[in-house]
Nucleic acid binder design. Structure first.
Lengths: 343, 343
DNA sequence: CTAGAAACTTTGCCCGTGTAAAGAACATAG
DNA sequence: CTATGTTCTTTACACGGGCAAAGTTTCTAG
């Protein structure tokens, strides 16, 4: 298999003109079938791959799609990123995965990096509070962007996420009708603004059912939610336990920490008799099935959310990006109650 | 802040010639200090970033470093990737993170993608059995490569990983001197060749201590280790429990599944009295601290391993890549026994 | 068979930077 | 102040493809 360096060489070796070969590489479907067959035949004889850098230099848009997540070591985002990547590839694009590592400055750098890569679009789960809002807005003004998981009002072509109100409502309803009403277990100073929405949704749901909201705010900074949940949980349990014996954690990672605390304190968690506490979470973390006891939670449908986000992005990119476009939309999906053993 | 599009414009606006500016961007230290100051002053007045594609087109090597991991949704690799990325950035390179998603074909595509990006080097944790060995070897022949976590004999400039023999020895020793000797809980058909090394190391360690190895091989395919551990664990417990009451899991993810199984079956795990089983793992998974009970395991020193891998890669890259270079080395680090509550 | 559209070829210039060569300006030591 | 090496400027070409225009061939429809 001879090695060929330039498109010129490849074109003459395959008996096709260079501009046509160029067209082929931009979109194999854009050339006549017989031509495509000849090119692909040549492609098997000759080892040739177009030079990425030369290709992208004069292209207005590349086939790159930026994927930015807050923290890759969080399995929730790991999973989300995985699905987004797969969908991008299936659509014929090259995903560029960047993690902000929980750091606003890093997020900004990631956007800068992306900008200089001239991506055709971007899928972004913003950090939230730590995000430099202007930087994100500036980025989204230049690159078609769909926000995921975490909304920044007014930025990007669309936001895709969880219907926090209904999701929290669902689990609060469930907890209230199956036992004592839940208190909310959350971080006093959460890095993620979703936490605030969840608190508000909790209060609303409790109010609707005629209960007084009870909030346990635990201290801690950063993204080590399990650790924070563990420490906060120990403190809560040593200080007399959960207000009502039922705890709704602001997210599954906190719940994992709280379950560990309960286990250490010998507090039995679950719904059977002999159980002293019920614990529920939100997100359906990949590990929620393996906690002890397994965690009752509200599942986000990663797959559908990612599918919607990618579909929207593709259509926005199609539309040339900066047309008058449609209104910005916020697409929120229902959470699905996942009943396991912890509540 | 005026926006400038080309290096030409930027050069004339800053009163420096373009070739010098070009030098500056390749290595700010390569120009005289006064010149650097003038350029950096201009950089603050003018908004300019060199075009990545034009830059890399004529460069033999870019400043990219490929980072390939088997499965990003596994927190172990998520964490490893995060550290590797950080180290690359600190060294002034741009990491390109690619996940093979547990699929050999995908790994091959990732290497292809990387190749066309002309990376200065690559850090790779191979899939193992699913890897296309020839593809990886071919890649490593063209790009300075350091293998991490999972060794493929003879490929790459160096392998950095865990000293499986000693790590397994350490935990087996500990388990044996603190209670009944452990059986090994593992997948019958593991996707990861490390598992085979661990089995061998287990047998050796047991032999050394005068015990007969006992292996519980559970069925299952793919990378859903927790699920496999859970099912296999349930089967084992229903079938009479662990051979000796002490279980060493081939990795922490299996252990997490086994702990969940034990919890469901009401089998108390730990070292206190009243405990029916001891469970230990290997890896020190980020979640091992939050299992119930917390998991005794052998920690891999991610940070040191990553540091060594990056340092080696940098020095190999320095050396021009394809010199006679040194011998290929295999650098293995000791595991650190982490005693928690499960064993 | 013929017209018109679609697809292709040819030609030629452009993109934004790397890089080499030759000479000018500058720094440092004596 | 002069010598010598550094660093910079100037000039010029290279890289590998994108893209547009004009002309040619091929396909499709009537």
């Amino acid at each position: 298999m001879r090695r060929v360096r330039t498109m010129e060489e490849f074109a003459s070796a395959s008996g096709i003109s260079r501009p046509t070969v160029s067209k082929y590489f931009q979109d194999p479907g854009s050339v006549r079938e017989s031509t495509r067959a000849r090119i692909e035949a040549a492609l098997e004889r000759l080892e040739y791959r177009p030079n990425v850098y030369a290709m992208n230099q004069n292209r207005r848009l590349t086939r790159n799609i930026g994927v930015v997540v807050p923290l890759l070591s969080d399995p929730f985002f790991g999973e989300l990123a995985r699905i987004l990547e797969r969908l991008c590839i299936e659509a014929g694009f090259r995903p560029i995965l960047l993690s902000s590592d929980g750091d606003g400055a890093r997020e900004g750098e990631n956007l800068d990096t992306l900008l200089s890569l001239k991506p055709a679009g971007a899928l972004m789960a913003p950090l939230g509070r730590a995000s430099d809002r202007d930087a994100v807005a500036g980025f989204a003004a230049e690159v078609p962007t769909v926000l995921v998981d975490n909304n920044l009002e007014g930025i990007g072509a669309e936001f895709v996420g969880l219907d926090v109100g209904r999701a929290v409502g669902t689990i609060v309803d469930y907890l209230c009708r199956s036992g004592p009403p839940p208190c909310l277990f959350e971080m006093a100073d959460p890095p993620n603004p979703n936490a605030r929405r969840r608190r508000a949704a909790y209060a609303a749901a409790m109010g609707r059912l005629g209960h007084e909201p009870m909030v346990v705010s635990v201290p801690g900074e950063g993204w080590e939610f399990e650790e924070i949940g563990l420490r906060g949980g120990l403190a809560m349990l040593e200080g007399g336990g959960a207000p009502s014996g039922t705890v709704l954690c602001s997210n599954d990672r906190l719940a994992i920490g709280l379950l560990a605390a309960a286990f250490r304190q010998g507090v039995r968690v679950g719904i059977g008799k002999g159980c002293a506490m019920r614990v529920a979470g939100i997100d359906d973390h990949p590990f929620a099935r393996f906690t002890c006891p397994s965690l009752t939670t509200v599942a986000q449908d990663y797959e559908r959310m990612a599918g919607r986000a990618v579909a929207t992005l593709l259509s926005v990119m199609e539309g040339g990006g900066s047309g008058p476009a449609g209104e910005r939309r916020e697409v929120i999906f229902d959470g699905r109650l996942v009943m396991r053993s912890s509540a």
